[in-house]
């Protein structure tokens, strides 16, 4: 609709002529419409931003609220009475339950957060334990290496002077 129609009209075709007239009329009507809407819009914006409008709407709202208050009160009282007679929960009861539920949710949320913290702490601790574990293995390997080196040097020292004794000792160690 916003697109300009392609100019493929045959000027001798009465239908096309009608179309051309319609399109140009529509275009000028749209221009007029947009211009009037724009001025109308400006006028309305000025109006709603005026003090007179603020005062009028505030007064109207105030009178509506004042006048409708007795009726609302009447409806509230009668609804409460009917619900009480029917042994049904009233608005206040539902509100109380909702409040308690929200309080429970808050407590659950705090518990959830604490569990998250504990989980994180355990993860950190196990990671550090793992790191400690790896260090232990390395230390033990170092110890073993040192002890093996000691044994090796002892064997070497023994094997040189007494051949028989060294053989016996080696067998005993095995």
């Amino acid at each position: 609709m916003s697109k300009e129609p392609e100019n493929t009209n045959n000027s001798l075709d009465p239908f096309d002529m009608l179309n051309t007239v319609r399109d140009s009329t529509l275009k000028s009507w749209n221009t007029m419409r947009d211009a009037s809407l724009e001025s109308w819009s400006k006028m309305m914006i000025e109006l709603v931003n005026s003090e007179a409008y603020s005062k009028t709407t505030a007064q109207e709202l105030d009178s509506y609220l004042t006048l409708s208050q007795p009726l609302r009160q009447l409806i509230d009282i009668s609804t409460t009475q009917v619900l009480a007679k029917l042994n049904m929960p009233q608005r206040a009861d539902v509100t109380r339950i909702a409040e308690r539920l929200t309080n429970l949710e808050i407590r659950l949320d705090d518990l959830d957060a604490k569990l998250d913290e504990i989980q994180r702490a355990i993860a950190t601790q196990s990671a550090s334990k793992q790191a400690i574990g790896t260090t232990n293995i390395e230390t033990r390997l170092d110890d073993l290496g040192a002890r093996l080196a000691e044994i090796q040097s002892a064997i070497a020292a023994l094997s040189t002077p007494k051949h028989t004794a060294s053989t016996a000792k080696t067998k005993g160690e095995n």
Binding site: N49, S54, A58
Partner: peptide, 17 residues
């Protein structure tokens, strides 16, 4: 701001209603 600043405008009445 204009609307709510009006002396007659009482938000407490709206909330009460």
């Amino acid at each position: 701001v204009r609307w709510v600043s009006d002396q007659t405008f009482d938000p407490a009445k709206i909330v009460a209603a």
